[in-house]
Every structure is written in C-alpha cells, then in structure tokens.
Design a protein around this nucleic acid. Structure first.
Lengths: 312, 312
DNA sequence: GAACCTCCTGGAAAGCTTTCCAGCCACCAC
DNA sequence: GTGGTGGCTGGAAAGCTTTCCAGGAGGTTC
C-alpha cells in the first residue's frame, strides 16, 4: 500500500522495478485512489465553491464557465451554489460549502452591505476570492474585478461630446459595480440624475418609466447593468421611443438582449469569462501558497452605436 | 463518539439526558461532522455531478439552477462541469465526476451519436439521469426531456394555416431535440427543406444564408434551437429581410435574443428550469431507491407572433 | 431470588489514504 | 572484516465517521 501510494504520488523513494510492478497492477485492476480518503488524510478536498448570487445572469454564467475550466485543469472540482438573489441564501450557501470542506470559495454575492453577509465574510476561515465585489470595511479579501468606472466615463464623455447635458442614470444595489459605474458617469456629469435600486429587470423597467416621464425629459439614459438595461429597453419600447432620435441610451455588457435591437445599443463592454479564469488562478495561487496574491482589475470599454445621437 | 453520532443522526437508541448533553456540547464546540469521513464510511458523498455540454446556453444555465436548488434542499451538493461543446471533454468530465465519487450524474451531453461517449455511458456504473437526451441504443437510462415535437408541430400547423407551402428548417446535431423538432415540422410539411448541422450560432447563420439564397426562396424559416435562431436572425438582419413580410420565421426558447426583435419572434417555448428540478427529483428518487423511476416528458408550446405572416 | 428482557452506552472495527519510521539489504571505504 | 551509508520496503498510525456488538443497569415475571 505504501509503495502504491508513493508510485502514484511520484515520491522519489521508489525503485524502477517496484514502479513498474505497481503501474502494471494499477492498470490491470483499474485502481484509482479514493478522493475522500485522500481528502480525509491530507485535509484538502481539491474542490472549490462558486457561490453566485444569481447564475441566471449570462455574465455570471460566463464567469462560472471560465472558472470551471481553469480549476478543472488544476485538478479542482467546482461546487456551484446559487442564491437566487437572496442574501441570506448567500450566507447559507457559504456555510454549506464550508461544511463540505471546500478548499476555497469564489464568491459573487448579491449584497455588499448586508450585515449578516458581512459578518459571515469576517469570520469565515476558508480562503475566499471575490468576483467583482468589494470586501466589507476593515476586511482584506483578494478579488478580481472590472474597471467599470473607466468604461462608463468614456460612455459619458461620448454623450457629452454629442451635446447631452441632462443625463439620467439607473443603477443597481449595493455593489462595487454600481458605485463604479455611477462614479464614472459623475466624473463627466456631476449633476446627473440618478435612480438607485436593485439589479433587477423590474427595477430597470420602473426606473426608466419614471425617468422618461420627467419634464423636461433627460436627453440620455444610462443603464448601469445588463438586467437594468433589459428592463429599461422594455420600458422604452412600451413608450414607443426611438433610441437615438427621441432619447439616447447606453447599456452594459455584451448580452443577447442588446444584439438585435434596432437601432444598435451603445454598450460598456467587458470579458466576463476572463474574470472567472483570473479568479480561479488567484485562488489556486493562494491555495498553493505561491507568493502574495494581488488583486486583479480587468478592463471595460465603451462601444458606441446608433442608440447614442445628438439630443433632439 | 458513538453517542454523538447517534444523536446527530437521530438514531432512536439515545436517552433524553444523553441527547441534551450531546447537543449542549455540540452547540458549545461548534462541532459539525466531517463530510469526508462520513462519505468514506457510508460510501456516499451526498454530491451529484451536472455534466453540461455547454452551460453558456441560457436554457442549460436555467436547468442547472433548477437542479441545484432542488438538490441543495435534499442535502446534495452540485459539482458542475462544462465540456465547451467537445464530446471528448464530456467523457473526461464524466470520468472526473466518477473519480470524485459523486452519487449520481445529471447529464446533458453534446453528441448522442458519438462512439466514445456512448461507450462511456454503457459502462459507467454511477446512476445517471439524462436531461433532454436519449440513451444510446440498447441502454436504459432514466431521463427528463421535452416534447419538442408537439410544439414544433403546432408551429408548422400555424404556418400551414397562414398559407405557407415552401418551408425550410435549420436543425442541430445528433440529439433528440433536433430529431423531435424535425419530426414535428415534417408531421405537417413532409417535403420540408432541411439543413442539418450542429447546434451553433455559426451554423445557424450559414444555414440561413444558404436557405434565403435559394430560388424560389422558402416563404418560411424554422430554426430548431435557440443558438440556431440566434445565428439565423443575424443572417436575416444582414440580408435586410423583414420578418413576416419578406419571410416568416419561427424560433425556439424564450431567450433574450428574441425579446426585443422587431417584429416579435414566434417561438416554441418551454420551461427549462423545470427540467432541472424534475431531473434532480428523479435522481434523488433513484438514489434513495424509492420505487421505479419513470421518465418525464415536459411540454413545449407554440407562441405565435408577428414574425409569422401569410407568404408574400 | 433468579431468569430474562429492554434500554442505553462505550469500545472497536472498517472505510482508504498518506506519511513517518524502523529495518533490511547492498554497497563502499578503511 | 567491519562500520557506515544510502536506497527501498512494509508496518503502523492518523485522519473522522458510522455501525456492530458486548455488556451494564434497571425493571419485570414467575
């Protein structure tokens, strides 16, 4: 047994003869080590959790795929949990992953300001990597995030150059993506009208309905998230407003919702899969204790389109 | 130790006094059992695999979410793998899940005709449930699937009533969804022109380009899958054809791509999340050896829209 | 009072690895 | 020839449960 273990884990203290015999027997018997026993002994399960607030969002799904591939190549399994948007379920899922003894967790939780969630993050003793989320005050957790602010600033600058002065924005719940996007627009329009709610299609709809009802109406609308864009586009369609001509519009993310819109939607874009890959790499680095982990900031950029035009 | 185990697993042979003392100690120490040791002893890991051909597809993501919730409630963890569309990766993922000793696998593989995949399915000894896939010839595997044929037949009937006679169809790779959809259309149009390829946006595009180039041009196009629809819609947009007026169009699935199309897209719809839930239930039933498993067939239905109109 | 039974408890084994350690053999050097 | 060294090997412990089993305590019945 000892020698089998040594052969399979490539321990140097094995004679060539023994190695051959073991490998022959292993091949013949189809033996493969029991991961539970390995985990029990070595105190690592070679599995990591991906705790998503809502994997239905295409951006997060893409992120999960990126992470899964990278982790698989490194020998890790990915345990997926979905909170369906409920912060308390995020907490429950993290606890569940802890009980399952995952070696680490990639976390994209729903609410960065929730007390219970933050209390949980403070006391959890599993290595974490945040995916486009900021840690609670006074806590250091490595993260992979997007530079939403730059992309948004470029979008706002584009609107300003087109002549817009009354710009309204719809932003989501307490998350760094929302804060950054907001800051990006405010870098250019410091008096921008802002409606803040949660990252949902419904709020995107309601907010857009309200904003286009204001008099004078804002000449441009910025939706700070793909779900908010989704809702806002519904509202604009229901109001029979033509994008560009009646009101300019900027959305987020390269999601299918935007592709077939007429006219085409101007977007702040990014590569979500890369966040998954880099997050996995960061976690793997931490788990193998291979140097000090450094936060990663991935770019976003603005892609202009006909939905942005000079104000009427 | 024995008594702790008995208390926590609610074994009847425990005195009330002992139960109280154990629970008090457990509460004080924050003890919780080690799942690896439990799994090692009981030979079940309380985790199941979800082997997806491509989780980026919104329909499959939705299915995964449904399965995850149901499994979580039953105490199972979900190990996700994604093959990125590569059948050999499906095989590798199933093998990996086996090495990880999952109790069962929900399988939505990419290619029902692939020799290596089918060989793998024949000899795998983990309980499987297929998600909208048929087992290889001569193999019995429980499954949850959709009745694509009925929905498609209704769509075709709708086209026939509108007066269409030259109908063309784009279908995907070797999967039951493709066969069923094809059969549904052929139930009505037995001379339907069919292009068969893989379930990809690219093939949807190429196939649509070819079909609308034919003379005389088919008066209606049916895309048998959401990715194929995605590609076909790109082609129709590039060709500046107006749906309904120039050519009628039927797509599949309630995906975002369809929502903002002008005119609205007629669709064969279904509830993908339910497939995940029912698949999980079926697997749980099998794992608890609770009666004979029965295959599940979920409905699809046709939702007419302006993309279908009488032929020009 | 003895025999028997029920209820409960703690010890021990088993589930499968990995790793430490002791020991064996062979070889080298003196 | 002897002592020392290095390379390998196999035994044993540990990692944490669960479950079987033996046995003790206390009650009941004849």
């Amino acid at each position: 047994m000892s020698s089998v273990s040594r052969v399979l884990s490539e321990h140097p203290d094995v004679s060539p003869d023994m190695r051959d015999r073991v490998l022959a027997a292993v091949g013949e018997l189809g033996y493969y080590p029991n991961v539970l026993a390995q985990g029990l002994r070595s105190q690592r399960t070679m599995s990591v959790g991906f705790a998503a607030s809502n994997i239905t969002n295409a951006v997060l799904a893409e992120t999960a795929v990126g992470a899964e591939g990278e982790l698989r190549r490194a020998g890790y399994g990915l345990l997926l949990t979905d909170a369906g948007g409920d912060p308390l379920q995020d907490v429950a899922n993290i606890a569940m992953l802890g009980r399952r003894r995952v070696d680490g967790i990639l976390l994209a939780h729903g609410d960065e300001r929730h007390r219970r969630v933050n209390a949980c993050l403070k006391q959890v003793d599993i290595p974490l990597v945040l995916i486009d989320r900021d840690p609670p005050r006074g806590v250091k957790i490595p993260s992979v995030g997007f530079d939403h602010r730059s992309g948004m600033r470029a979008a706002a600058e584009h609107l300003r150059l087109l002549g817009h002065r009354r710009v309204a924005m719809i932003v989501g719940g307490p998350r760094r993506a929302a804060r950054e996007r907001r800051a990006g627009v405010q870098d250019v329009f410091d008096r921008c009208e802002i409606l803040e709610g949660d990252f949902s299609i419904e709020f995107g709809y309601r907010a857009a309905v309200e904003l286009i009802g204001r008099r004078p109406r804002p000449t441009a609308l910025v939706a700070g998230g793909n779900t908010l864009m989704h809702g806002a586009l519904r509202a604009l369609r229901d109001a029979s407003l033509t994008l560009g001509a009646d009101v300019s519009f900027v959305g987020c993310d390269d999601v299918a919702v935007a592709e077939f819109h007429q006219p085409q939607i101007a977007l702040v874009r990014r590569r979500p899969r890369e966040a998954g890959v880099r997050g996995a790499q960061l976690l793997i680095q931490i788990l193998s204790e291979d140097g000090e982990p450094e936060n990663v900031l991935l770019p976003t950029w603005f892609a202009a389109a006909a939905s942005c035009a000079p104000p009427p």
